[in-house]
Simulated scan of single mutants.
Amino acid sequence: MRILIIEDDPAIAANLYDYLEAAGYVPEHTADGVTGLHRAVSAQWSAILLDVSLPGMDGFTVCRKLREEARKDTPVLMLTAKDTLDDKLAGFGHGADDYLVKPFSLKEVGARLAALIKRHQGQVVPGALRVGDISMDPRTLDVERAGKVIRLPRKCLHLLQLLMSAPGQVLRRAELETAVWGEPLPDSDTLRSHMHTLRRALTPDGAANPIETVHGIGYRINAISDAP
């Protein structure tokens, strides 16, 4: 997923860039409003992180032009030192989807960004997920395989939901870790251990394993007919 960062403070921009890249996103940075608007309009983005106080064109104007002139509905999270209620209302009034005041936690940026992207993609209240003979109800987190109920720990349920939301696609380790634990983990054994627990639960009585390890990258779930 590609994220556009429009931020003129080089330290903040670098922190955001590094954090998002480690989380599995593909970030791009611009440092002024005019260039930022051009990039926002000329390419496809999963979301935009937008500062308000920018050289060339302020963030409010960038957001308004993005909505009214370019007719783009890309999710926009405003990041700014302006913290009054009027400032926040102005941000929403110009088309922002969310508003976060500086200084902020990178974890909160990641959580809000993920929520905006899910909402934009219509995944907030999704229907039942199905991959081969595995089904999951995201609202109740009930899991079945071939009609048999599967019991899973909470974090394994979250991992399974992420994998089943993108069947056949490789999800990077850092992306999974950030979604489940809030940040990439220094020790990959934690994710590996939870994946082992998930696989064991999904493969009773020697059933085929639907979760594939893509070595050096991450994991994906395949329909049972495609599983090795």
Rank of each mutant, 00 (worst) to 15 (best):
E28P: 10
R39W: 06
P55L: 05
V62M: 13
S53H: 11
M78I: 15
L37E: 01
G56N: 02
H38F: 14
S46V: 07
R39C: 02
S53Y: 15
D51N: 11
L49A: 05
T74V: 07
A70C: 05
W45Q: 06
L66T: 00
P27E: 10
V52Q: 10
C63N: 14
G36Q: 03
V52E: 08
R64W: 10
L66Q: 00
V76A: 07
K72V: 08
S42T: 10
G36C: 09
V41P: 02
A81P: 11
E68S: 13
T84C: 12
Q44D: 13
P27N: 13
R64V: 12
L79Y: 02
D51F: 00
V76N: 00
D73L: 09
V26K: 08
G59N: 06
K88G: 01
K88Y: 06
T80D: 05
D51W: 02
G36P: 06
L49M: 09
G59V: 04
D32Y: 07
T80P: 04
G24V: 13
V41L: 14
H29N: 06
S42W: 08
Q44P: 07
A81V: 15
V34K: 13
E69V: 12
M78Q: 03
A70F: 15
T61H: 14
P75D: 00
D51G: 07
W45C: 03
K88V: 05
Q44Y: 08
P27T: 04
L85V: 08
A40M: 11
G56V: 08
Q44M: 10
G36W: 00
L79D: 04
D83I: 02
E28D: 04
T30C: 12
T61V: 14
H29Y: 11
E68Y: 03
K65H: 13
G24P: 15
H38N: 09
G24K: 08
